[in-house]
Every structure is written in structure tokens, then in C-alpha cells.
Design a protein around this nucleic acid. Structure first.
Length: 583
RNA sequence: CGGGACGUAGCGCAGUUUGGUUAGCGCGCAGCGUUCGGGACGCUGAGGUCGCGGGUUCAAAUCCCGCCGUCCCGACCA
């Protein structure tokens, strides 16, 4: 591609609305342009990168035995009502109405549609297993779109769905996708980890996320340097601390006046204790069912953890299952003015259930809320002053906590969720009647898995990892072009020779099947070099009068800055191996 | 949804506090000339509903009201 004809305008200044490097550079380099919040146009260079990622995903899906389909983006809400997700997704869905006032949504994902299709075609154990996938635009009206392509409202996603007859089959289908995902992200040049995760709206039991390690990542995950354990902080557990059994001999519990200090920090300072000496009591509603078979109204529960730790709502939910827990928000406290928010202690009389973390031991006296506004107590002792109904590992795992598998201190990182694989089970197959008949004529719901890759997000994640001060620096597999050919012609006596040599080289490279972008513009060397660095092709070749006199061109590797010279006749052979086909 | 900031040429910004000729600067764009291995220089030029609507005023980019848009922080941690 000749740059003189390429639809491209690079920007010298950073765009004002871009915070993170990937966003800033993709806009500056003319790869994408914002059209609305969270919605982007892909310009020629950006679109080539997107297609490269797409092709890698396609190849790996095909190799894993999945079959590509294309599902509609406009989907009837009636179908979503069958799984109940029209409600679950709520305002996250873009909704629209047709002329007959029938409701549709723009697909945020496609479990319902695909399950409906498979249910309509397949009905025998002989048909299974089957895995289908598509690479298609998805729409989510995010609470807060941000970071350019990283959290867009329109994004390209590969979504795959497996259908199996039994749990073993599902496990196998899942494993095949898992392995394919590893290959995809390796080929994309991402530094990533697969981590245990929470399921969210999708549902299901087993699931893992693929995290591209990045400081700007919106997710936090822990990982063990000594074994394979890794988990999203939401889902992470730790080796439970040993329970102390020797009670402390402490003075009686005594209240102190702590006016206007509802927070841990203020109380710790006022009472001159460490955060870790305090007990934090989080009020939550036990929804629907009363603890002791009462009338079904919400009841009050307390989650108790040391003051330097936070309650993991997912762990709390697991601890009270099958009942559900909703941590009190402002509305709840407004509805229960008798509960002294900020001054609750574990000895609160109205609490139907006290759930505590095992690190709350009998071997020490705690500072905690006095259950009276503007008061805290010292010397609250477990067993003497308060009791616990349920013990559960409640805290959000923090760096240095012992690994649940091997006990080594856990490390923590941030990541961009680029993929997520789920074993769904029968949630959708039951809702949408995807059943099969087994060998003995009995009917069963199919076992499903679903598997997503954020294709457009991968582009941003790779840009986030592969760039420097000067600009982007694509791994060869994703670069829009493999070679950036720069002609430094000027207007001196040798200008014609330089142009002729560069033109000839360009033609030779094209003939050899190399994707090459050729800067044949009338611009100064500084402009051309700066643009080459910004655009980030893996290899730059420079043809100038200086080298031409000696029959050489300069080769520079973008990522390393390594530079050497190639004899004119050797250039094509030297760069041919680094060639990738676009679909 | 709550809080904050912003909206002036394709991009980045000044001007708004204290209303007052033809609304400015840099980059980019067009023309001419010089220059040519790390974002060169000179001259000339094009390009603006000052986000939109309403109001105040002799006069509004500037003041007031409403709306729209964009970005940031938060949206259960007591």
C-alpha cells in the first residue's frame, strides 16, 4: 500500500478524550475514530489488525472442531423472556421496537438464539456433541464505557456454544475451547493468565477468565508464584487461617464515645488502634426466606471481618446459600433507621444471622461498633460478648495471603478480561427446550458450554502491551503490514535514483507476497520516521541516497530498535518469512 | 444514577472571571519558493451555526435558564 493513497491522518497531539495508552495511540495513529461514547469506526489500518485477530480466532476455533455460523444482531425480546434474561440484563441491553411495536434487542450475546436453533434441528444423542461459533458485533449499553476499545458499547466478540449429552462430554468440549483460547492469546502476543472467575449474568458453574496482564486492566486477580492457582479477586479464596482456641483474658467490654466516626479509619485514629484490631460488621438482607422458617420477609444478617479486610460479596452469597444475601445499600438503611450504620457490632440483637471470617478469633479482644450511634466498644471477645452462627471465608483475598492449594504467599495483578469460558449446564437448554433422546428413548436437556473472546478488546489489549513512547509496536501476527518501506528521496541529484530503487523494492516485495506499506509521500525524513514509529509495523526498511550509494538499505526492528543493513538484492529473501495472510 | 470537569476550524488549545470593532494561536490542509537521515523554514491562502434552544441587553463565545454531548471519579465496605 502506498501511503500517498492510504486513507490515513496521524495526529501530532494526543486526543483530549483518551486516557489509556492503547486508546491514545490507536487514535493518534489513525487506526480508529470515535463516533459516539463507546462506539468506534475502524479505519483501514485498524480494520486490518481487527481482521488479523479475527482470523487467528477463526483458525483456532476451526482447528478445535467448532463450526462457524452467523447469528442475527437484532433479536426478539420474546426469545430473551424465555430465559428470563430480558429482565436480568435490564438496561444493559439496547432495545428497539419495530413498526408493529414488537420488542427487539441488539444482541449482547447469543445463548438464547443459538439454543433455539440447536433445539430446532437436533434431538438425538447421535447428533451430539456439536460446537458452533460466530464472530459478530455485540451491543451492551455499559454503565460507563471507557478506555476506548477496552470497554465499548459496540464490540466484536467471538462467541461459541457447545452442546453435549453428558457431563463428561461437556468437560471435553470445555477443555478443547480452553486449549484453543491459550493458543489464540499466545499467537496474539499477549502476556496472559487464565483465572478462576465468577459467572455473572451468564450463569453456570465452572468458568475461567483469560486475563491480559495490564496495569490499566479493570479486573484484579491473584496468582500463586509456586503453583498453578490463579483467580479473579472476586472468586479467589485463601488457605483459611487456623482457628485459635485459647480465649483471651480481657477486661469487660466497654463503650466509648466516638462522635461522628462511622468509618474504620476515623475510629482507628480516635481510639488509637490498628485497623486490624477492629471488627467490621456489614449489614445484609437475607432475602425471601426467614432464617427459622418465618414469614418470608427479609431478615438482617451481619458479615464480620477484621477492619483491615473487605467482605467479598460472592463469598458471603456462598456462605448463606441457598438463601441469598444483599448487602445493605443506602435505601436499606433508610428503611431501617434503627440499625446504626457505622456503629454496628457483632453483638447486635436484631441480627438473625452472624457470619464471620475464621480470622475473627477468640484469642483477642476487638474494637467494634457499640450498636449505638456515635459509640464503639473495646474488648469485645468472641464467645463471651458475641457469638457467630456461620463461619465462612469471607474476606477479599489480598496479596500475601496463603494460596488455597499450596500455602505460598499469593501475588496480585490487574488484567484485561480478553476471554471467558463457561460450563453452563442446562440453564438455557431447559428454558428453550433443547433436549435430546438417549439410547433408551428418554429425554434430557443438553449440557451447554459457552465461550467468548473480545476480539476488538484484544486489539486494544495488545496495543496496551506492545507500545512505547514513540507509538505502537505490533507483534508480526497482528500488524496491518509486515514491512514499512520508507523512501528518503529529497530533491537532490540522486532523488530520482532513490525513488526508482524504492519503487522497484516495493514491487518486488509485493510480488513476493509481503504485506508492505510504502511511504512514498513527499515529506521530510523526520515526519516519515515519526509516522513509522507511531504506526508500529514490525520492520522498517529505509531507502536513502546514503545507503543506495553502497547498494544497501537499512533495516530496523520496531520492537527492539535493532538496526542493520541489507544488500539490495537480499531484502526480499530477508523479510519474506514474516508474512501473514489476511482473510 | 450521584459527584466533578469540559464543549470555540479536522486535531490540540487561548479568549468567558470583568459583555463591546472583522474570534485568536499551534498542528494539519491548499499554493509558491528554499530545505531533505528523526515531526524543517518563509510567504500567501482556505477553513468557524463559538454544542443546541430560549432569555437578559443597544450589544452575548462571554451573563441567566433549559436541553444535548464528551471525559473522569463513584455507584455495598459502614
Amino acid at each position: 500500500m502506498r501511503m500517498s493513497r492510504l486513507f490515513l491522518r496521524t495526529l501530532r497531539d494526543d486526543p483530549a478524550d483518551a486516557e489509556v495508552d492503547s486508546h491514545r495511540l490507536l487514535v493518534r495513529a489513525g487506526y480508529i475514530r470515535r463516533v459516539a461514547s463507546g462506539i468506534y469506526s475502524w479505519l483501514p489500518l485498524g480494520y486490518r489488525v481487527l481482521r488479523r485477530v479475527e482470523q487467528i480466532v477463526r483458525e483456532e476455533m476451526d482447528a478445535a472442531g467448532a463450526q462457524e455460523v452467523w447469528l442475527p444482531i437484532a433479536q426478539p425480546l420474546e426469545l430473551w423472556a424465555r430465559s428470563g434474561r430480558d429482565v436480568d440484563y435490564g438496561p444493559l441491553m439496547f432495545r428497539l421496537r419495530d413498526r408493529k411495536d414488537t420488542g427487539y434487542c441488539l444482541s449482547p450475546t447469543a445463548e438464547e438464539v443459538i439454543t433455539g436453533i440447536v433445539a430446532g434441528e437436533y434431538s438425538s444423542y447421535r447428533d451430539l456433541p456439536v460446537t458452533l461459533y460466530q464472530i459478530n458485533w455485540k451491543y451492551r449499553d455499559e454503565l460507563r464505557p471507557r478506555f476506548g476499545l477496552l470497554r465499548g458499547r459496540e464490540f466484536l466478540m467471538k462467541d461459541a456454544y457447545s452442546f453435549d449429552a453428558d457431563a463428561d462430554g461437556l468437560k471435553q468440549s470445555y477443555q478443547q475451547m480452553y486449549d484453543a483460547y491459550r493458543r489464540v492469546f499466545e499467537r496474539c502476543g499477549l502476556q496472559f493468565r487464565s483465572v478462576e472467575a465468577q459467572a455473572g449474568e451468564i450463569g453456570g458453574d465452572v468458568n475461567q477468565e483469560f486475563m491480559a496482564v495490564a496495569a490499566v486492566g479493570e479486573d484484579e486477580f491473584v496468582w500463586c508464584p509456586s503453583c498453578e492457582y490463579a483467580a479473579n479477586t472476586e472468586a479467589a479464596t485463601r488457605r483459611a487461617p487456623p482457628r485459635a482456641d485459647a480465649p483471651v483474658d480481657a477486661p469487660p467490654m466497654a463503650a466509648e464515645h466516638t462522635p461522628d466516626l462511622p468509618g474504620i479509619a476515623g475510629v482507628a485514629e480516635h481510639m488509637e488502634v490498628e485497623y486490624g484490631d477492629m471488627l467490621k460488621c456489614i449489614a445484609f438482607a437475607i432475602e425471601g426466606g426467614a432464617v427459622d422458617g418465618g414469614d418470608g420477609a427479609d431478615e438482617l444478617g451481619l458479615a464480620v471481618v477484621p477492619g483491615d479486610r473487605e467482605v467479598n460479596p460472592y463469598a458471603l452469597a456462598a456462605a448463606v446459600a441457598p438463601r441469598s444475601a444483599r448487602i445493605y445499600d443506602d435505601d436499606d438503611f433508610a428503611a431501617h433507621p434503627e440499625i446504626p450504620k457505622g456503629y454496628i457490632g457483632p453483638h447486635y440483637e436484631g441480627a438473625a444471622l452472624v457470619v464471620a471470617d475464621p480470622s475473627v478469633g477468640v484469642d483477642r479482644a476487638w474494637v467494634t461498633g457499640a450498636n449505638r450511634v456515635d459509640h464503639h466498644v473495646r474488648n469485645a471477645v468472641l464467645g463471651r460478648d458475641f457469638t457467630v452462627d456461620v463461619w465462612a471465608d469471607l474476606v477479599v483475598v489480598a496479596p500475601g495471603d496463603p494460596c488455597p492449594r499450596c500455602g505460598s504467599p499469593l501475588a496480585i495483578d490487574r488484567g484485561i478480561e480478553v476471554g471467558h469460558v463457561f460450563q453452563l449446564g442446562t440453564k438455557y437448554s431447559e428454558a428453550l427446550d433443547a433436549r435430546y433422546t438417549d439410547e433408551s428413548g428418554d429425554q434430557h436437556p443438553m449440557l451447554m458450554g459457552c465461550y467468548g473472546i473480545g476480539v476488538s478488546r484484544v486489539v486494544a489489549a495488545v496495543a496496551e502491551e506492545h507500545h512505547d513512547e514513540e507509538g505502537l509496536s505490533w507483534p508480526a501476527a497482528l500488524a496491518p503490514y509486515q514491512v514499512h518501506l520508507v523512501a528518503l528521496a529529497g530533491k537532490g541529484g540522486s532523488a530520482g535514483d532513490v525513488v526508482a530503487a524504492a519503487d522497484r523494492l516495493y514491487a518486488e516485495l509485493c510480488d513476493a507476497g509481503v504485506d508492505v506499506i510504502y511511504d512514498d509521500r513527499e515529506a521530510s525524513p523526520g515526519v516519515k520516521f515519526a509516522d513509522a514509529d507511531l504506526l508500529g509495523m514490525p520492520v522498517r526498511l529505509t531507502v536513502g541516497a546514503r545507503g543506495l550509494a553502497r547498494g544497501v538499505v537499512e533495516r530496523r526492528v520496531r520492537a527492539s530498535g535493532d538496526q542493520d543493513e541489507l544488500a539490495l538484492g537480499d531484502v526480499v529473501a530477508a523479510v519474506v518469512p514474516s508474512s501473514y495472510e489476511l482473510p
